[in-house]
Design a binder for these strands. Structure first.
Length: 855
DNA sequence: CCGTCAGGCATTTTT
DNA sequence: TGCCTGACGG
């Protein structure tokens, strides 16, 4: 049953050795053209085929190209057949990109690299073959001597040594002995939502106050353990105290519950595979023989579990090539260990380390600025990026009075760049990006860009498959396919509302538990026993009958699954729930249905999109399997747009022009990050700054604001300490547009550092007039943000009497406009898009607030 | 059982 | 400021 020759490429693994002929026939062409346009470092990394290799690839140094060439080289040199190469990435996006790149390479790899994918998808593939080896944890550990060296605890994780030899028999033997509750190959993969609901049940069942001890926290703790490859029995004693002393017990209970549900979470995919490899040398050996060469992308982001996964697989031949950049490790907070890459040479003896340092992306000024910042970090492997590109513009730095002013200025800069500025060719909006530290910073830009009619796209919003309506629909499909999917059933049994509340839910659960049956069956019993009555019972019976019918259809291969999906969404009343119920008259007149709320149209679109996606699959089951692992969507509409995203989301991307707003201490570096992780946290923030700067090809503009509204509160801040780390020679300090003075003098703040850039900003700003200071004092006393521009009138609600029709006005939020009309104490102001006469916003100001006009 | 309202609360995100 | 959760009343 565990035979590796079950499907796909493993067929071929049965052959003890591969004939050269087979290799020639199935491998790629013998051309070595792929080597020609590599630089010496890339070439070195590509040609080092024996033993472990660490490719230290700086930002924009062509690592993907080198990776592709290495794959081609492995095949051309007959080191491995395409399906014997294991290529691991972190995201589906990266995996997809590699596949596309590989297809486009000038050389020809005829066989697909079958084992190319994310840690999670590859693990799922492996785990499906050996699911039944994952069983009751307790039994697993009682079945052999727990004190022997086959248990790898955290301390040992880095000193793996020889493969542990368990005394629990081969997988075949274990199979025969049979041990309770095992995972089955058709397990479902839970997402965060399911996970949290499950944990909440467990917490409540354990009589713990879920307010003081929220499920989220427990999920985080368990995730942390799984990231470190710790099964419940391996969690160190020192951590017994977490989660009110019940963390470990709950973890155990959670794993048990997952087994009962025949489910795994994302962490389990890796954890289980590592567990199997550790306890079944026979299986590990087969995989070791099979994967002759291993390639890993973004190695700096691996966590302990992934590290073990790789070490176990590479343990035999050590033909592993890891690609990464220690300076771009920004996922420490989710378990990534920079240490993994830092200690690569130690882990893999005789490892060859190749540095890719020639940068093909950015100008020398940008590289120098980035280098200046990252230099402040300790314990780097060290790299010096260089480029042959022309010098270009210096990095630009500007301070603003507040966040809205910053957004306004950036909006204008974007428009200026779009039409060509400072002797530069006009840029497409697609080539500009605004990279923020925290997503709440995005709103200021969205507001502003909406106002001036500047097209933008936000990257990294709620993902398609995580949206409520999509998850609801998916839950319906899941129950239709497997009626014993309790979590899915629970999710939708009362969605749309069917009059089944807490009590009904409990009744169903109890019926299911006490009889050892699924919730769906339990529901039937609960109705039959009269526990659920009247309206609820009627609706529930109806639903159960529907499910029985849908299940039959789902099993029928002759029936279209797309049609079934449509029927389910329609007949379940789910789609109808987005519409207002029709009145009798409306039905009589045959009126169209009316959406209940503004969001409904978007939701319906999404559901249509979902049904469309179904068409690419043979059946619902195949689709569900796909979705549980691939949770991303790409809706890239054609129109040109400025991108707004977080720094994290920007990793791996590049743009000719990059804006880096919000460089204020506390926001960036994030206070929380520093509080929680101290110097380590600060260094990671600094790497984030490095990632941000190195996204830029030609123009990089850093900005900060003296005042920012955070959660509705005005807060003032000092410029980021990273600003002081920018090498002055490569930075141009800009004076805020229209402002005769700037932040420091105005806000009464001292520059952040003693030397360097911050001081120069202060000088550029140096506005000291008494009038300005008076104004500032007043606005500060009022707790208001008051950017002022001498040549324009600032709209203050109290200022109507000082306006005349035709006055040019300026407003923090809306920019420049004209007073169109005055009616009593109301001003009709029309705001125009910069450089155009077109009115983009109308604004009526009423003089509600008393107060003086500042001019 | 379902809708409304007040109060607590806010990084970064992939699979 | 705006979202999510839990308490409360119909």
């Amino acid at each position: 049953m565990n035979d590796l020759s079950e499907d796909d490429a493993f067929e071929a693994a049965a052959a003890p050795s591969l004939s050269q002929q087979a290799m020639a026939a199935r491998g790629g062409s013998r051309s070595t053209g792929y080597l020609d346009d590599l630089n010496p470092a890339q070439r070195e990394a590509v040609e080092a085929l024996d033993g472990p290799v660490l490719m230290l690839a700086g930002a924009g140094t062509g690592k993907t190209k080198a990776l592709m060439a290495r794959i081609a080289h492995l095949i051309a040199e007959k080191r491995a057949m395409p399906f014997q190469i294991l290529a691991v990435t972190f995201t589906n996006k990266a995996a997809r990109e590699m596949k596309v790149r590989l297809e486009k390479t000038p050389f020809d790899v005829r066989e697909p690299i079958r084992w190319m994918g994310t840690f999670h998808s590859l693990s799922a593939k492996i785990l499906r073959k050996h699911a039944e080896l994952i069983g009751n944890y307790q039994e697993l550990d009682l079945s052999h001597d727990n004190t022997s060296d086959d248990v790898i605890d955290e301390q040992d994780a880095y000193d793996l040594g020889p493969v542990p030899k368990p005394n629990i028999g081969t997988s075949a033997e274990r199979q025969k002995t049979g041990y309770g509750n095992n995972l089955k190959p058709n397990f479902t993969i839970l997402d965060t939502d399911d996970q949290l609901r499950l944990l909440k049940q467990l917490i409540v069942a354990a009589n713990i106050d879920d307010k003081r001890w929220p499920p989220r926290m427990l999920a985080h703790i368990i995730e942390g353990w799984k990231n470190r490859a710790l099964t419940p029995d391996k969690v160190p004693e020192s951590e017994a105290g977490v989660f009110d002393n019940k963390g470990i017990a709950l973890y155990k209970a959670y794993q048990q519950r997952l087994l009962t549900l025949n489910a795994v979470d994302f962490g389990d995919l890796l954890l289980h595979v590592v567990t199997i490899f550790q306890t079944h040398p026979d299986i590990l050996d087969k995989y070791r023989n099979w994967f002759r060469y291993i390639l890993v992308d973004e190695y700096q982001d691996t966590n302990v579990a992934q590290y073990l996964w790789l070490r176990l697989l590479a343990g035999g031949h050590k033909n592993i090539c890891c690609v990464g950049d220690d300076d771009q490790s920004i996922y420490g907070w989710r378990g990534a260990e920079v240490g993994n890459i830092l200690r690569f040479e130690k882990d893999f003896e005789g490892a060859k380390v190749v540095r890719l340092e020639q940068n093909y992306r950015s100008t020398p000024h940008i590289l120098a600025a980035a280098a200046g910042v990252i230099d402040a970090n300790k314990g780097r492997l060290g790299k010096t990026l260089w480029t042959e590109a022309e010098e270009g513009e210096k990095l630009r730095l500007i301070g603003h009075w507040d966040g809205e002013e910053e957004a306004r200025w950036i909006g204008e800069e974007v428009e200026a760049m779009q039409s060509g500025t400072r002797g530069m060719a006009p840029k497409s909006l697609d080539h500009m990006a605004i990279l923020v530290r925290a997503s709440h910073q995005m709103r200021a830009f969205e507001d502003r860009f909406l106002t001036i009619g500047l097209p933008y796209r936000v990257i990294g919003g709620p993902r398609f498959y995580e949206r409520m309506e999509i998850r609801d629909a998916m839950a319906y499909f899941r129950v239709a396919v497997s009626p014993d999917d309790d979590l899915a059933f629970e999710r939708i049994v009362n969605t749309p509302k069917r009059g089944l509340g807490d009590k009904a839910m409990k009744d169903m659960q109890t019926a299911a538990r006490t009889n050892g049956i699924s919730m769906l069956e339990g529901a039937r019993l609960a109705v039959a026993s009269g526990a659920i009555k009247a309206k609820g019972a009627k609706a529930l019976t109806g639903l159960l009958d529907e499910f029985a019918r849908w299940h039959r259809v789902a099993l029928d291969p002759n029936h279209s699954h797309v049609e079934l999906a449509e029927v389910i969404l329609e007949d379940s009343g789910y789609i109808r729930s987005f519409f207002r119920p029709q009145t009798e008259e409306e039905i009589e007149r045959g009126d169209a249905l009316v959406h209940k709320d503004v969001e409904a149209p978007g939701r319906l679109e999404n559901l249509k999109e979902l049904v469309k996606a179904l068409e690419q699959f043979e059946n619902l089951q195949g689709f569900l399997e796909h979705v549980s692992l691939i949770m991303d969507n790409e809706t890239d509409e054609g129109a040109e747009k400025v991108s707004i995203m977080t720094l994290h989301a920007a990793k791996g991307l590049e743009f000719p022009a990059v804006f880096l707003p919000g460089w204020e201490d506390g926001l960036f570096p994030s206070q929380r990050s520093m509080d929680e992780s101290g110097l380590k946290g600060l260094e990671e923030e600094r790497r984030l700054a490095y990632v941000g700067i190195t996204r830029a090809e030609e123009v990089c503009t850093i900005s900060f604001a003296a005042n920012r509204r955070v959660y509705g509160q005005w807060q003032s801040a000092l410029p980021s300490r990273f600003i002081d780390e920018l090498p002055a020679d490569h930075v141009e300090v800009l004076t805020p547009s229209g402002l005769q003075g700037g932040m420091y003098g105005a806000a009464g703040m001292a520059p952040a550092g003693e030397s360097g850039i911050a001081e120069r900003v202060a000088q550029a700003d140096g506005y000291n007039s008494p009038g300005w200071k008076r104004l500032q004092a007043r606005s500060q006393a009022r707790g208001m943000s008051q950017p002022r521009e001498a040549s324009n009138i600032v709209i203050d609600a109290s200022a109507t009497s000082s306006f005349l029709e035709g006055d040019r006005v300026f407003h923090t939020k809306f920019g420049y406009g004209t007073v169109f009309g005055i009616e009593g104490d109301k001003l009709d102001i029309r705001f125009d898009k910069a450089g155009e006469k077109k009115v983009v916003a109308k604004f009526v100001v009423a003089a509600e607030k008393a107060g003086d006009v500042p001019f």
